[in-house]
Design a binder for these strands. Structure first.
Length: 302
DNA sequence: TCCATACCTACGTACCCTAG
DNA sequence: CTAGGGTACGTAGGTATGGA
């Protein structure tokens, strides 16, 4: 067996401590060792793995991309170690179950909140970590195990190099909403009334935008697009400010009326927003994610 | 102030030699 | 053959020092 295959867990512990503490000096305090002792061990670990794990950023050390991957594993390994000690002392484990969720910007945060809430209500403690971004960025993080699952409005394309699985959570029909005064003027003659009306839409690279465009074409409606948004939260804020109509998943219709004072113009018949959980696992096994999955079937049109 | 490098010591292990 | 001692080597830790 070569040196590369022999993992020195002491080296890994030092590396883990440096990343967790954010500096070599603080890791020294925690481990009661001198800086060169740790520095040398880190160098040995990098040589053994054949990868650069830390780089200097200003005065401190920060993990490289590979370093973040290694840190993720180390965190699991030493987290389990803590659990082992807790188990020996017959205490409940202190470490909560960790669920890292990547959230596609285009998915309304209100839906994300409703979908994820049950994850925090399962029998064991859960620490939910949410990261937002574009689907491409989130898939890259998923590929290196930085996140457990991605919530998106579109399934992962088969052409993508990441081998991941789409788990359909369900769908919601779309409605058009606006501030009450604008909604009232557009209700008559809908959907033809949207001709020339100001609308806010998700950007063209999203599945829901493509479905809405097709719906507008089908009804031969030509609204004036005054804003396109990658982030649905921003789209919603512009809708609240008045002056334009916005597509809203019907599952949020009542909430948008109560919380944001928006009124319904009419339904975008046939347009359904799809929601997917994308993970590297063929079958969902994470207990918190299973709770999310079951909840999604209740609140969405599974 | 933080980290890397050079050079040192301490310790454990593997291996060899030798006496009983 | 076995037990005990010597030697070589690798690993892990230290101090001193210098660069960024």
């Amino acid at each position: 067996m070569t040196n590369v295959r022999k993992l020195n867990y002491q080296h890994l512990l030092y590396f883990w401590s440096v990343v967790r503490n954010g500096s070599l000096t603080r890791a020294c305090e925690e481990l009661h060792l001198s800086p060169p002792a740790i520095s040398a061990q880190l160098k040995t670990l990098e040589e053994r793995l054949g990868e650069k794990l830390l780089v200097k950023s200003g005065r401190t050390l920060v993990p490289t991309e590979v370093g973040r991957l290694v840190y993720g594993y180390a965190d699991e390994i030493f987290g389990l170690g803590r659990d082992l000690l807790d188990a020996l002392e017959q205490r409940p484990t202190r470490r909560p179950l960790r669920l890292v969720v990547g959230i596609d910007d285009v998915v309304p945060k209100e839906i994300v909140h409703r979908l994820l809430q049950p994850a925090l209500s399962i029998s064991q403690p859960v620490r939910l970590v949410c990261r937002e971004g574009t689907l491409e960025r989130l898939m890259a993080d998923l590929a290196i195990h930085e996140i457990d699952v991605v919530l998106s409005d579109s399934p992962i394309a088969p052409s993508l190099s990441v081998r991941a699985y789409n788990h359909p959570l369900g769908s919601s029909k779309e409605v058009w909403m606006a501030v009450p005064a604008l909604a009232k003027t557009l209700r008559k003659g809908f959907p033809g009334s949207l001709n020339g009306a100001p609308v806010l839409l998700p950007t063209e690279d999203t599945a829901i935008r493509r479905a809405l465009d097709q719906w507008l074409d089908r009804h031969e409606v030509r609204p004036v697009i005054i804003g396109e948004f990658e982030d649905y939260a921003l789209l919603r804020e512009f809708a609240r400010a008045g002056g334009a109509v916005a597509p809203v998943p019907a599952v949020l219709e009542e909430q948008f009326h109560q919380a944001y004072g928006l009124a319904t113009v009419g339904p975008a018949n046939g347009v359904e927003a799809q929601f997917y959980a994308i993970s590297l696992e063929r079958r969902i096994r994470h207990p918190a994610l299973l709770a999310v999955w079951e909840n999604a079937r209740r609140i969405l049109n599974g």
